[in-house]
Design a protein around this nucleic acid. Structure first.
Length: 330
DNA sequence: TGGATTTGACCGGA
DNA sequence: TCCGGTCAAATCCA
């Protein structure tokens, strides 16, 4: 649970610093764009790129320290505490009857329910094959639904402490859809595919909370309705389609300027290119502060600045900026 | 035989 | 008090 006083103080103290750094980053990016357009010397561009990276680095540092500070007041979100009573159940096996009622009342379930923070939902006509190995640990009949909800955890939960879980709910729609809700991050190392990437040239303008992904056999569509924000007012909304056959990016809706265009990697198709899909990101907490460094990778060249954002880490992005139900706010 | 699945019970939160 | 998330013994299966 997030401590409201900590969140407020964090916002008060760091908000201005973060906003300032982001504004500077945007201005530097604009400068870089001009340098490129005017074909200025490489040295000038590199200097600007260095400043941009420094600015983003400052933002990350501020947010990172904020996370750590906030952790003091956060209750651990996860947690499965192993049941202290499990040993009491060992003796039950002495009875030959199968699936019998234990002699001593079963007290398993000594756990702390995780909050719904840091979760996102995908809906598809078929169960999603996301490249991770999952182990089913429960099934539950849910009120007002005709199909049970299935609960899965990462198979690496115990050997690597991976806390990722997902819930799969078959809907009553016609045709039936599978709503898969992912919770937590995969921290396991040998159990995941390389996340697909979106390479963008104006990273500060994105709110993953507003993304909508649609994928078909021939194309992947990402639409984004950017919540209004003074800083991002120049980048309200867009829709892009990546044509995987022709490897072209088609922008739809408002014409994007050169600095706003997104370059979609073909790897995006790893998501689930065979079926329509929507993806909604949400996060109401900031309990995970250990993923910031993994959420971004920045590379620079003389011609463009690329900031890779793994789609699989969109919630990570949310961690950094605390995306909530109300949208992106800094 | 070991890993995966099933399923009833337990527990926390609303 | 009810609902939903998780546990863990029992069971299944390759």
């Amino acid at each position: 649970m997030e401590c409201s006083s900590c969140s407020e103080s964090l916002l008060m103290i760091d908000r201005k610093m973060v906003v300032g750094e982001l504004i500077e980053g945007r201005e530097l990016t604009n400068q870089l764009q001009l340098l490129i357009q005017n074909q200025k010397p490489l040295v000038e561009m590199e200097t600007t790129v260095t400043k941009i990276l420094q600015s983003f680095g400052n933002v990350l540092s501020i947010l990172d320290s904020g996370e750590k500070t906030g952790d003091v007041c956060h209750s651990p979100m996860t947690t499965q505490t192993s049941s202290p009573f499990s040993d009491d159940l060992k003796s039950v096996d002495s009875n030959n009857d199968k699936r019998k009622i234990p002699a001593v009342k079963d007290r398993r379930g000594g756990y702390k329910r995780r909050k719904s923070a840091n979760s996102w939902t995908r809906i598809s006509p078929n169960p999603i094959e996301d490249g991770h190995a999952w182990r089913k640990y429960g099934q539950k009949e849910i009120l007002n639904t005709s199909h049970p909800r299935n609960y899965f955890r990462c198979t690496r939960k115990f050997d690597q402490g991976c806390q990722a879980t997902k819930q799969v709910q078959k809907t009553d729609e016609d045709p039936p859809m599978y709503q898969t809700t992912y919770m937590g991050h995969h921290t396991c190392t040998d159990n995941q595919l390389k996340p697909p990437q979106v390479i963008l040239e104006n990273p500060t303008s994105l709110s993953p909370n507003s993304f909508n992904f649609e994928s078909t056999k021939s194309s992947t569509i990402i639409s984004c309705t950017q919540d209004y924000h003074p800083i991002f007012s120049s980048f309200p909304s867009f829709k892009l389609e990546y044509d995987e056959q022709n490897h072209k990016t088609i922008s739809m809706g408002r014409q994007l300027s050169s600095s706003e265009q997104f370059i979609l990697s073909p790897e995006l198709s790893l998501l689930d290119s065979s079926e329509p899909m929507t993806m909604l990101a949400s996060s109401s907490g900031s309990d995970h502060g250990d993923v910031i460094s993994g959420a971004y990778s920045c590379t620079t060249s003389s011609e463009k600045l690329e900031v890779d954002l793994g789609l699989g880490s969109i919630d990570d992005f949310g961690d950094v900026f605390s995306f909530g139900e109300e949208g992106f706010s800094i």
